[in-house]
């Protein structure tokens, strides 16, 4: 069955996916809200940038992130100058990469959910004495709940499943940056098919259960479909 390094890879994977999902929900919510309300002329540019990971080969994204986060990259150099270490090949680097890579899977369902609410419920709340922040938390967020569930599940599952980006910027350091998808690759390379089966089967089952939960909960399939 699973050996110790598999379990460690599982732990890293879950930690990475949870952290990434949390960061994306916190940053993606205001971003998605702004995208759903703004009438800025060049909004489409930002939307295109956010959607890039949907079409870009993960290795390309990973390559540029590696340059950015490595010791000679602007972000890596900044970290070094502040007495830290470059972010490439660290868990923190993985988190940053995952946040970019999974961003459309969180932002788009949220943006769709916020757009679907329309202007009216917010206006009603305004005429019932609710301040802008108050109505955002008591009206917009509860009404967008299906979108939040979809965003969280897709963001989580997509991060669990990433391979190319992780390989490029995280390398394959057991106990630090080795995640499940890479452990599976290692097992197959080493012809340890039984291990590969356990891990692959486990991931397949988990992804399937998560999606069943989302589809069962959300009668609004539209949001999910748009995101995928």
């Amino acid at each position: 069955m699973l050996n110790e390094s598999d379990l460690i890879a599982l732990g890293i994977t879950l930690k990475l996916a949870l952290l990434t999902t949390c960061i994306l929900l916190l940053t993606g919510t205001p971003l998605a809200w702004w995208l759903s309300r703004s009438r800025w002329r060049y909004k489409f540019l930002l939307e295109a940038i956010i959607a890039l990971p949907l079409v870009l080969p993960p290795t390309v994204l990973g390559f540029y992130l590696l340059l950015l986060l490595g010791p000679n990259g602007p972000l890596g150099a900044l970290m070094m100058s502040m007495g830290g270490q470059p972010l490439a090949f660290t868990f923190s680097g993985l988190v940053i990469g995952s946040v970019f890579y999974s961003m459309p899977f969180v932002v788009q369902p949220l943006q769709d959910a916020f757009s679907a609410i329309g202007q009216r419920p917010m206006e009603v709340a305004a005429t019932l004495r609710a301040s802008p922040l108050d109505r955002f938390f008591t009206v917009a967020i509860p009404l967008a709940r299906p979108g939040f569930l979809t965003a969280a599940v897709l963001g989580f599952a997509h991060t669990v499943g990433e391979f190319g980006v992780v390989l490029m910027i995280g390398g394959n350091i057991p106990g630090e940056t080795q995640v499940l998808s890479i452990a599976i690759y290692d097992h197959v390379e080493g012809l340890e098919y039984a291990h590969a089966h356990w891990l692959s089967g486990g991931l397949l089952l988990m992804s399937f259960i998560l999606l069943i939960a989302v589809y069962a909960f959300n009668s609004r399939f539209r949001v999910v479909k748009n995101a995928i």
Binding site: R120, E123, S131
Partner: peptide, 17 residues
């Protein structure tokens, strides 16, 4: 701002939460 005006507003569609 609208939320500070002492009004009640009934829209054409009921628009309940």
């Amino acid at each position: 701002p609208p939320h500070q005006r002492p009004i009640g507003y009934v829209f054409q569609e009921a628009s309940l939460f």
